[in-house]
Amino acid sequence: MLSIRNLSVSIEGKPIIKRLNLEVKEGEVHAIMGPNGSGKSTLASVIAGRDRFDVDEGEVEYMGQNLLEMPAETRAREGIFLGFQYPVEIPGVSIANFMRTAINEKRKYLGLNPLSGAEFIKLMEEKKKVVDIQSKLTNRSVNEGFSGGEKKKNEIFQLALLEPRLAILDETDSGLDIDALKVVAKGVNKLKRKDNATVVITHYQRLLDYIIPDFVHVLYDGRIIKSGGKELAQELEEKGYDWVKKALASNQEVK
């Protein structure tokens, strides 16, 4: 579904991602872990199409297409979803209006008829249950005055409505208490299907107790320095990132 080959990305001449490789297949859940400043959020942003980064080399293929050539909105309509680490407040634009526009623009792109008001409301009611979202929330302005937990729930609510093929969740667990974390994780698990994939980006192992990954990758200094199964997350939690860093210093490839 997603192949990242030899990707190098910089911002204002400063290299952030360095010759990174990653392969995500349908039905898989990947976790990317790493200390602050390792390039996790940059990787997520580049996949979603934020244009403040320079791609210096490498390629990203998504469903057989060159992803890097697509504008952000096309990527979204083709099924890529980025759950923001810091969801943006949009004063005056209601979630309902925002999502209805998003869904209908995607449907138009796919050659489908737009959803009517009634159909959209029905869909919204159905998806609200996924994240336990309060009815009132959807009439409020997007993220405006939301608590940290509400913002993240709102991201998952949007994920549920848009039904992406590839969801990238950037530090969705940050700033959440354990109850909110469970709700968010439950939402993600409910939306898991055989033909979609999820990439969870996180600093802590905590979220991975609830969203069980098939693969765990350690991102450090713009490179994936170690990959493994879900047990790698546990190991990282116990030994800390210093463990990989030290190992890396003594030997380029962590065994």
């Binding site: 952000a72 909105e73 979204a76 979803f81 943006v88 949009i90 998003a102 623009e105 848009l162």
Partner: peptide
Amino acid sequence: FYMRSRGLCERSARQL
């Protein structure tokens, strides 16, 4: 960018 990442074209995002 947030709106575009949900599939809205620039024009719709601006209008909203």
